Simulated scan of single mutants.
Amino acid sequence: MPNAFYAIGEALIDFIPTERDQLLKDVNGFMPQVGGAPCNVAAAVQKLTGRSHLVTQLGQDAFGDRIVETLAELGVNTQWIERTTAANTALAFVSLTASGERDFSFYRKPSADMLYDSAHIQRLPLASGDMIHFCSVALVDSPMKEAHEALLAKAHEVGATVVFDPNVRLPLWDDYQAYQQTIQAFIPHADIVKVSDEELGFITQIEEEQQALQSLFQGRVKAVIYTQGGDGASLIFADGTTYTACPTAVDVVDTTGAGDAFIGAVIAELMQSVEPIETLKKEGQAILTFANQVAGHVVQQYGALTSLPTREILDNNV
């Protein structure tokens, strides 16, 4: 049976502004787009490779219906998406600067995904060749955090490969120290950690870049992917082996989902391998280049999901 990919965490509706370079309070119109980092990654993997599943919970509401229908149209397996009347589907309102950077306001106190019951994890048919992806947004103290812990324990038991992209969202945490400590506690449970230049200092509390990156090699961590926006990305191993790749300059419209598309592209490449970490060691340069190509395509359009390319689209744009 082919390897499968499972992304766990939040799925929500991003309300993207119809006007740029405005503070969020001054935006007069929004376009609803399906989003949430795990959701974006699941969609990216599906469009590039297939066999992608999203593990989450949505409200029994119109926004939840929209997410399920959108993912189903993309081919993402939605059978592990639970529905509840106890809370609504999460929403995020976004403002964009002239350069495409974002500011967020989240509505999830709590949202349906936060109430996901860890008992559902036992039903997942996880196998040794599968890959898992998670972020930090859903790691607030909640049933969903317990579900993450249950899934990671199951992944370790069967030998699945775990990818952790903290995807730091400070507005969702009242206590930044607790947030930093939570991320640090989950890092050792991942085989691959992705971190951006904007997040590195916060996560590690270390100013010197190389020292901060090396500090991420804890527990099971075998590889660190370090992204620096337009300056490219690096793939670093504990023994010091490093690959780097710089993206082609493009006209940036919206950076929403670019990091998710990047790590989704990395995962899609590794999904085709029996030994993902060994493949990453041997083909790191090519994998980073491909991931930059995917992210570069995404930032030229609005919306995290609608801008995701297929391999055919990427081949035609070369």
Rank of each mutant, 00 (worst) to 15 (best):
Ser273Ala: 12
Glu269Thr: 14
Ser234Asn: 07
Ala233Tyr: 00
Lys282Thr: 14
Glu278His: 07
Lys282Gly: 10
Leu288Val: 05
Ala304Arg: 03
Ile313Lys: 09
Ala291Cys: 09
Asp239Tyr: 03
Leu288Phe: 02
Leu305Cys: 06
Gly232Ser: 12
Val250Pro: 14
Ala286Glu: 08
Met271Tyr: 02
Ala233Arg: 00
Asp239Ala: 08
Leu235Trp: 00
Gly284Val: 04
Thr306Phe: 06
Glu312Gly: 08
Val266Glu: 04
Asn317Gly: 00
Asp254Gln: 07
Gln300Thr: 15
Asn292Lys: 07
Thr310Asn: 09
Pro276Cys: 10
Gly232Gln: 06
Asp254Glu: 09
Ala295Asn: 04
Pro309Gly: 13
Val294Pro: 03
Pro309Ala: 12
Thr279Asn: 13
Gln300Val: 03
Thr244Leu: 03
Val252Gln: 12
Gly296Ser: 01
Leu280Cys: 04
Gln285Ser: 09
Ser307Ile: 03
Val274Glu: 11
Leu314Glu: 10
Glu269Arg: 13
Arg311Pro: 09
Gln301Lys: 15
Asp239Met: 12
Asp260Arg: 11
Leu270His: 02
Pro247Glu: 01
Val294Lys: 02
Ala249Arg: 15
Val294Cys: 02
Glu275Met: 10
Leu308Trp: 08
Ile287Cys: 04
Leu280Met: 11
Leu305Ser: 08
Asn317Ala: 13
Gln272Tyr: 08
Thr256Ile: 15
Asn316Val: 03
Val252Asn: 13
Glu312Pro: 05
Glu278Asp: 14
Leu288Met: 04
Tyr243Glu: 11
Ile313Arg: 06
Asp315Gly: 02
Gln272His: 12
Asn316Phe: 05
Ala291Pro: 11
Lys282Leu: 14
Ser307Glu: 04
Gly230Arg: 12
Gly259Lys: 15
Tyr302His: 14
Pro309Thr: 10
Thr306Pro: 01
Glu283Ser: 14
Gly264His: 03
Ala238Met: 14
Glu283Leu: 01
Gln293Arg: 15
Val252Glu: 15
Phe290Gly: 04
Tyr302Glu: 14
Ala258Thr: 09
Ala245Glu: 00
Ala261Leu: 05
Val294Gly: 06
Ser307Asp: 01
Tyr302Lys: 13
Ala233Cys: 04
Val299Glu: 04
Thr279Gln: 14
Phe237Ser: 00
Ile263Cys: 05
Thr306Val: 08
Arg311Tyr: 12
Leu270Arg: 07
Val266Arg: 04
Val252Asp: 14
Thr256Gln: 09
Val294Asp: 13
Ala286Arg: 07
Thr310Tyr: 12
Ser307Gln: 01
Asp251Met: 11
